[in-house]
Design a protein around this nucleic acid. Structure first.
Length: 936
DNA sequence: GCTATCACG
DNA sequence: GACGTACGTGATAGCC
């Protein structure tokens, strides 16, 4: 056949490869390669399609020429016309990303032409080839269901929806668009396309567009004679939006005149090479397809080893021993040529584990020192970028070490892959590395994070730091950092570590990260936590990174004045305390205070703790305060001491000199329940309960012309409990907006609501909280300062009135005992390791098991809201700053306050939908002010 | 590095 | 019958 020229009697099949991958991915269950968990579902679907194509080669309607066309990653020429083109496309799912390069490999293995062109979309190549084939008098079948391609139908060109096995000719196009193929672009230009973000004309859909085009004949005619349109609104739109409509037409119009470096003749059908193809299918471990293909090619089917037995849950045993850790194999990348080799390998692989080395831990401040990369277990490199020369040399102290490529050059070379949507970047705590790289102009995406995977898999079992994970799941002890940096006063920063010492340490981190990813990836699916990881963990990373970068403005003068005032008051109290004690001692030392109170002064109630010291906690001092003046003074002194040292003094040190703001760091895996933790500084425990403490919030302020906005969920945990336990009385009370604590009191004590006293309500409130925490008579008694048997009586009465709550508690504990974990409504698992323990530990584990689904579900809800928030407020000048478990804090110009409240409340109140339908509605309260005290 | 204390939801 | 208890966090100071 070879050598024939494309022309009459020839039949060209054009396969829209990129579109097919997405359809295969979404249509098929997630499938992974058994030996290593590589996601492979879309590749399998793709190969089955190619197999059918090869089968067709012998059929009655056999193609003479065939090609699979792919989108080239990155931007197309349409983005230069309109920067929003396809801008609202979500990034490809992370388990699809590594499959892109594999589908190209598959195409080549089937010996089918595989084409893509930088700067163009697959549709344009298809259009160009179809036009060429039509001009030459041949037939064309476009295998795709993309409606954008329908403009090409006619004159021997048809489309075939491979999944539905449906052919579309000119009549089919008329059915879909109401116009013939030659007017499809006109209709699309008017109707727009939300998927590709083509604007079109607002308020006009396909139906109306077809009507107008059929009436006027063409888009140009329509726009010129728009005055003649009868409907006033439609007329106005077409006149006002003319530019946008014309731009839309350019966006949807396919380019039929691309210059290609190949011709139709290069696409001639070829038989697959048996060796190449069988090797590929065997590598992918496709058993059925290998067998069918072997039959078809008349060769022996290769043996593919059976899958190993289901992996044990404690995975230490299944650690991939195959590739031992070998720190001598790690490469030090010192120039552009060496780095280019790695960039090429990364592109070929479709994924890379990345780790950055820096001069410290505060991402807002520290500098990049080097980057390590790993594409395959055992094969990693370190790129030193800012290591300083040894300090011995009088002049070399501040100079850079030899043999490092310029930082800007390395970052520029890596930027493309790090931002490429077709290359997955894998990290351990990626938020840190992404924030560092962001400061060097790189927006890392898409990402996977082994720390978050471990959190989704193992919350409650152990921590999620790399060292612990490596020990546990790879059976490998990482090189410790301590010997490199030293400790205490002589500690150095990473840029002072000699490069030869840095290479094995840094490269190993990337190696470990990649291996952890390979171990965890298939586990997510097996443990049924893929949805948790994909919807509650992975998408939160960029949201938290942005909040942390935003920071919140803190007024140093206000804090400083408060510190001085506290210091004065403390000095006064300290003098009084020493006088009352008749000696001077360190008021801040519980040990010394205990001896004064109980030994010297002989007060009653001294209880010694484990280490023989008297206990002097607030509750004990509170009791003693009725006997003597000293304990009250100590309580006051302690409150001031706390406020001064932890807040008014320490917060000043956290004000970033560049931004004038305080940037906390959120630990996404901090709490086992799904809650976040805030550190450096902790902005989730800024005082609010006491009057003096609350004033510290006056130092958290909005920028000039802005206000702080606080939106918090009202009673979210009780609402979730009412839903989970199915307590209709409570659900109804929430639906009617009643005072839930008063209602509880009324139900329990039989007091009518109108006769409710604050004291009775307070007791009911304590019980409601107690229920959430896994109530005990002892705990409630201590909290309410009532006799234990009275507290037990309250609890008994509560359960009598709300038997569903007890049932919920019992069944939750039962579930935990059987499975070793409990779950939130959104599927998050919290492991309850010690639930079957004996002794006092059992009580702890039981209460934690009862609390975790409630606290965790509330945490999931606000996470969902936070993930949706950037999209919901993108059109507003508002910034999300802080999260405090059930509260979100925003900063917004005064003019946009109402709109922001409406948008944010909408997101928060509906955050559970559509994954979970709650039987109680969620209610969000909003406050605003120049500072956090006013807003809250 | 551990313990006690106390700030928050 | 004793155990020894509210759930989840982080920062600071004292003390070894």
């Amino acid at each position: 056949m070879s050598g024939t020229t494309f022309g009459k009697g020839c039949h060209l099949h054009l396969i829209d490869g990129s579109a097919f991958i997405f359809r295969a991915y979404h249509a098929l269950p997630p499938l992974t390669r058994k030996s290593d968990g590589l996601p492979i579902g879309a590749v399998a679907g793709f190969c089955n399609m190619l197999f059918k194509q090869v089968e067709d080669n012998k059929g009655p309607d056999a193609p003479t020429h065939v090609a699979v066309i792919f989108d080239h990653s990155g931007m197309s020429f349409r983005n230069e016309m309109y920067d929003q083109y396809k801008a609202n496309r979500p990034p490809a799912p992370e388990d699809l990303v590594p499959q892109f390069p594999l589908t190209r490999e598959a195409t080549k293995a089937f010996n089918i032409a595989c084409k893509e062109v930088e700067g163009f979309e697959a549709d344009d190549i298809i259009a160009t080839l179809a036009c060429q084939a039509r001009a030459a008098g041949g037939r064309v079948t476009i295998i795709s269901s993309d409606k954008d391609l329908m403009q090409l139908v006619g004159g021997g060109v048809e489309m075939l929806d491979a999944m539905k096995n449906k052919r579309i000719d000119s009549d089919g196009v008329v059915e879909k668009f109401g116009v013939g193929p030659d007017r499809v672009v006109d209709v699309q230009a008017l109707a727009g396309d939300s998927v590709d973000n083509v604007p079109g004309a607002p308020g006009i859909g396909i139906k109306t567009a077809a009507l107008l085009i059929n009436e006027f004949g063409s888009l140009e005619e329509l726009l010129d004679r728009a005055e003649e349109i009868k409907q006033p609104k439609r007329r106005q739109t077409l006149i006002e939006m003319r530019d946008q409509i014309e731009l839309s037409k350019k966006l949807v119009q396919l380019d039929c005149d691309m210059e290609l470096d190949f011709t139709l003749d290069d696409l001639e059908v070829m038989e697959p090479d048996a060796d190449t193809l069988m090797t590929f299918l065997t590598e992918m471990e496709f058993r059925t397809l290998s067998k069918r293909m072997a039959d078809r090619l008349g060769v022996e089917a290769p043996a593919i080893p059976e899958a190993p037995a289901a992996a044990p849950v404690s995975a230490a045993a299944e650690a991939p021993e195959a590739v031992p850790f070998d720190k001598d194999k790690y490469e030090c990348v010192r120039d552009a040529a060496a780095l280019q080799v790695w960039v090429d390998r990364i592109r070929e692989r479709g994924w890379v584990a990345v780790d950055t080395e820096t001069t410290g831990l505060d991402e807002m401040v520290v500098d990049l020192v080097g980057i390590s990369l790993c594409v395959e277990a055992g094969e990693a490199c370190y790129i030193p970028l800012a290591h300083k020369a040894g300090g011995d040399d009088l002049f070399g102290g501040e100079g850079l070490s030899e043999g490092q490529m310029p930082l800007e050059e390395a970052v520029a070379m890596l930027k493309d892959v790090l931002e490429d949507p077709a290359v997955l970047k894998i990290g351990q705590n990626m938020k840190y590395d992404a924030k560092i790289l962001h400061r060097y102009g790189v927006d890392v995406a898409p990402i996977d994070d082994t720390m978050l995977m471990s959190y989704a898999l193992h919350a409650g079992l152990h921590g999620h730091g790399m060292d612990a994970l490596s020990e546990r799941y790879l059976d490998h002890t990482p090189i410790p950092i301590k010997p490199l940096l030293g400790s205490g006063k002589s500690a150095i920063t990473f840029d002072r570590v000699p490069i030869e010492d840095a290479v094995p340490y840094a490269a190993e981190d990337a190696d470990i990260t990649l291996r952890l990813w390979q171990a965890f990836k298939p586990q997510l699916h097996q443990e049924r936590v893929t949805t948790v990881y994909e919807t509650l963990e992975r998408p939160l990373v960029p949201v938290l990174a942005e909040m942390e970068r935003n920071g919140i403005k803190v007024d140093r003068d206000t804090l400083s004045r408060m510190s001085n005032a506290f210091a004065q008051k403390m000095a006064g109290l300290e003098a009084e305390i020493h006088e009352l004690a008749a000696e001077t001692f360190n008021v801040g030392s519980p040990a010394q205070l205990g001896e004064i109170l109980f030994d010297k002064m002989g007060l009653e109630g001294g209880k010694r703790g484990k280490n023989g010291k008297y206990s002097t906690g607030a509750d004990i001092l509170e009791d003693l305060a009725t006997e003597h003046d000293l304990p009250r003074r100590v309580l006051d002194w302690r409150q001031l001491s706390k406020l001064k040292s932890t807040y008014t003094d320490a917060l000043q040190d956290h004000i970033n000199p560049d931004t004038g703001r305080v940037h906390t760091s959120y630990a996404q895996t901090g709490a086992s329940t799904g809650r976040m933790a805030s550190t450096d500084p902790n902005l989730q425990n800024i005082p609010v309960r006491s009057e003096e403490g609350r004033r510290i919030r006056e130092a958290f302020v909005a920028e000039e012309g802005n206000v702080l906005l606080s939106l918090d969920y009202s009673q979210i945990e009780l609402r979730i409990l009412a839903h989970m336990a199915g307590i209709e009385t409570l659900q109804q009370a929430f639906a009617e907006g009643q005072d839930i604590h008063a209602l509880t009191a009324s139900e329990m004590f039989g007091v009518p609501l109108e006769e409710m006293t604050p004291e009775i309500r307070r007791q009911a409130k304590a019980i409601n909280f107690g229920v959430i925490y896994g109530i005990s008579g002892f705990g409630l008694a201590r909290n309410l300062r009532i006799p234990r048997k009275d507290a037990q009586g309250f609890i008994d009465r509560y359960f009598e009135r709300f038997p569903g709550i007890r049932k919920y508690m019992d069944s939750t504990v039962e579930f935990a005992k059987e499975h070793g974990y409990v779950q939130t409504l959104f599927g998050r698992k919290i492991h309850t390791a010690e639930i079957n323990a004996k002794g006092p530990k059992a009580g702890f584990a039981k209460r934690a098991a009862i609390n975790a689904p409630i606290q965790g579900t509330a945490a999931d809800v606000i996470r969902r809201a936070m993930i949706r928030m950037p999209g919901a407020i993108a059109h507003l000048p508002a910034r999300m700053l802080l999260q405090v478990h059930d509260e979100l804090l925003f900063e917004v110009p005064e003019a946009a306050v109402e709109e922001t409240i409406a948008a944010a409340r909408e997101v928060m109140e509906n955050a559970a939908d559509p994954a979970v339908h709650l039987d109680v509605k969620l209610v969000v309260d909003a406050g605003r002010g120049k500072n956090w005290a006013e807003a809250h």
